[in-house]
C-alpha cells in the first residue's frame, strides 16, 4: 500500500519538519483518527491523513459511496487495487501541477492511467477535488454536481479506486476513479 507522507519542498525540509512537530503538539495529534461531526466534517483543526488512519479513510469513502448508491437502488462497488494505484498517482500529479483536473502533467487521461496501472476494464468516470474537506464531504460535494453525480450513480459501476495526496499545508487532493 502506498504510504502518504507530507510533501517536503526541496531546500526547506528541515524548517518544515520542525514546523510539523510544533504543529503536532499545538493543534492536533497526527496519530489519532480524525474526529468527524454528523455531517462528516473534521471537528477541529486540520484533517490530517496519516499511515495509521488511511485505511479507515478509504473504508469510510467506500461506505459513503455505497450508502449513497444504495439509497438510489444501485448495486455496491468494490475497491480495485489497480484503480487505487491510478487514483493515488493522479492525486499526487494534481498536487505537482497545482491544478484540480482530470489530466496528468504528461497529458494522460483517466482511462489511460487505469490501463497503465494494469486495470483491464472500462473507466466510466473520474472525479477530483482540491480541498481541505474530508472524504465524506468530498463525496457529498460531488453528489451536488450534476456531471459528477452521473459517475457516482452510474448503474454500470462495479469497481472503484479512491486516491489521495496531502500537501504539507494540509490541503487534500482526492481522486475517485469509477469503472465497470
Amino acid at each position: 500500500m502506498p504510504l502518504i507522507l507530507p510533501r517536503i519542498p526541496s531546500g526547506a525540509a528541515l524548517g518544515l519538519l520542525s514546523m510539523l512537530s510544533l504543529a503536532a503538539c499545538a493543534n492536533f495529534s497526527p496519530a489519532s483518527p480524525p474526529r468527524l461531526d454528523e455531517g462528516g466534517a473534521a471537528v477541529e483543526g486540520l484533517y490530517q491523513v496519516t499511515a495509521e488512519n488511511i485505511t479507515q479513510i478509504r473504508a469510510r469513502a467506500l461506505d459513503t459511496l455505497n450508502n449513497t448508491r444504495q439509497d438510489s437502488g444501485l448495486s455496491a462497488v468494490i475497491s480495485d487495487p489497480y484503480l487505487e494505484q491510478a487514483a493515488n498517482g493522479h492525486s499526487r500529479s494534481m498536487s505537482d501541477q497545482g491544478r484540480a483536473w482530470n489530466f496528468g502533467a504528461d497529458g494522460s487521461s483517466p482511462p489511460e492511467r487505469a490501463r497503465r496501472a494494469g486495470f483491464q476494464g472500462t473507466v466510466l468516470g473520474e472525479l477530483v477535488s482540491e480541498t481541505y474537506e474530508t472524504e465524506v464531504q468530498a463525496i457529498a460535494t460531488w453528489m451536488g454536481n450534476d456531471l459528477a453525480r452521473k459517475t457516482l450513480l452510474d448503474p454500470a459501476a462495479r469497481r472503484i479506486g479512491f486516491g489521495l495526496w496531502q500537501d504539507i499545508s494540509g490541503k487534500l487532493w482526492w481522486t475517485l476513479v469509477v469503472a465497470d
Binding site: N102, G125, L127, T131, W142, T151
Partner: peptide, 15 residues
C-alpha cells in the same frame, strides 16, 4: 478563513 473562501475546486470526467 475557510468560511469566506471557496471550499473546493472539483472536476469530473466521463468515459
Amino acid at each position: 478563513p475557510p468560511s469566506d473562501a471557496k471550499r473546493h475546486n472539483i472536476a469530473s470526467f466521463r468515459g
